[in-house]
């Protein structure tokens, strides 16, 4: 039982960076832009967040820098695909390669200034990243551990997912924004500022991805800089968008399920099933493939996959 609770907690922690990436990508896809650069935007956010924290000693500044870093990556993507109408897939892939490279480059460069040969966040920041403790609530048996004792990123991620869910699903602005991903010409004719909202959503999505990147560089490795710290999570996030049915709130559950798959290998007792570790490493990708197959077999149409996803919009096209 104790082991099971620990497993659930680990699943939530492993799922949190996925949650940021997924919610960020949903925002972008809802305006019709398939951004395969999630990994890249997370990497830039990981780097800018970590470095800002390292040099400024301020947690708030680190968060802002991570968001700005991700948004900067998204800005490159948005400029190329929205304004210059470049191919979305190629641009996204390039952004991934660029983001990882830039992040590692700055990391290695900064390491050169370090006397110890490592980069470790100052204590002033790591203090903010410890698990919260709410007197009373966090001390409850089981519930306290399961719900009220994570680091602030976890709650921030859930909060962002819920706010974005309300934004897209419940507000008139959200409805207007969704119509851009469905039929940009219709949105344009209805007086919606297509270009503005495309930039807005892509950049906002990038910022959220950037915060997810900061989680990778600041929490997962306990405040020590390593290269390639996002490590493929951005790719899983792209697939998770489909798993979540393009709904930010569903992304919460989806990320934690995939988080669970990622940590399963550490918690599955050998006495129950003895499988090679490689099998567990493969699981998230196997499930991703299954999700893709099942979702493509479903016939029902509704608000989900944006109809104009991947298509650039040019008003005067004939």
């Amino acid at each position: 039982m104790d082991m099971f609770i620990k497993f659930l907690v680990a699943a939530v922690l492993a799922g949190t960076p996925l949650l940021f990436g997924t919610v960020g990508e949903i925002l972008s896809e809802k305006v019709g832009h398939l951004n395969l650069g999630v990994e890249g935007m997370m990497s830039i956010g990981a780097c800018s967040g970590f470095m800002a924290g390292y040099f400024s000693d301020s947690f708030a500044f680190a968060l802002i820098a991570a968001a700005l870093g991700g948004a900067l990556g998204a800005l490159i993507y948005a400029f190329l695909t929205v304004t210059l109408m470049a191919n979305q897939n190629v641009t996204g892939l390039t952004l991934t390669i660029f983001g990882i490279g830039l992040s590692n480059f700055i990391g290695v460069y900064a390491l050169g200034f370090s006397e110890t040969g490592t980069l470790k966040l100052p204590d002033g920041i790591t203090a903010h990243m410890r698990n919260i403790h709410i007197p009373g609530l966090s001390d409850l048996p089981v519930v306290g551990e399961l719900l009220f004792s994570y680091n602030p990123f976890v709650y921030l991620g859930i909060l962002i997912a819920i706010i974005m869910g309300l934004y897209l699903g419940r507000t008139q602005t959200g409805l207007n924004v969704q119509s851009i991903g469905e039929n940009p010409a219709a949105a344009d004719a209805a007086g919606i500022r297509v270009i503005f909202w495309k930039y807005f959503n892509i950049l906002l999505g990038g910022a959220i991805c950037g915060i997810g990147g900061a989680y990778c560089s600041m929490i997962i490795n306990r405040g020590v800089w390593i290269s390639n710290n996002v490590g493929g999570l951005g790719w899983i996030a792209v697939a998770l968008v489909i798993f979540a049915g393009w709904k930010p709130v569903n992304a919460i559950g989806g990320s934690f399920v995939f988080g669970a798959l990622r940590v399963l290998k550490y918690y599955m007792p050998k006495s129950v099933i003895d499988l090679p570790v490689a099998f567990y490493d493969m699981l998230p990708f196997l499930i991703t493939a299954l999700v893709l197959v099942i979702s493509s077999m479903r016939k029902s149409r509704g608000i989900g996959l944006p109809a104009a996803l991947g298509l650039n919009y040019y008003r005067e096209e004939r």
Binding site: R170, T171, Q172, T173, L175, N176, Q178, S179, E182, N183, A185, A186, A187, D188, A189, A190, G191, I192, R301, G302, I303, G304, A307
Partner: peptide, 26 residues
């Protein structure tokens, strides 16, 4: 203007299409 080629969002309901582009509270 009622365009010859309808400018509607297929996945939306009639209601949502009708209020599309309006501002303020949903």
């Amino acid at each position: 203007m009622i365009h010859q080629h309808f400018k509607l969002v297929d996945a939306f309901t009639a209601m949502d299409n009708i209020v599309l582009g309006t501002h303020g509270k949903r």
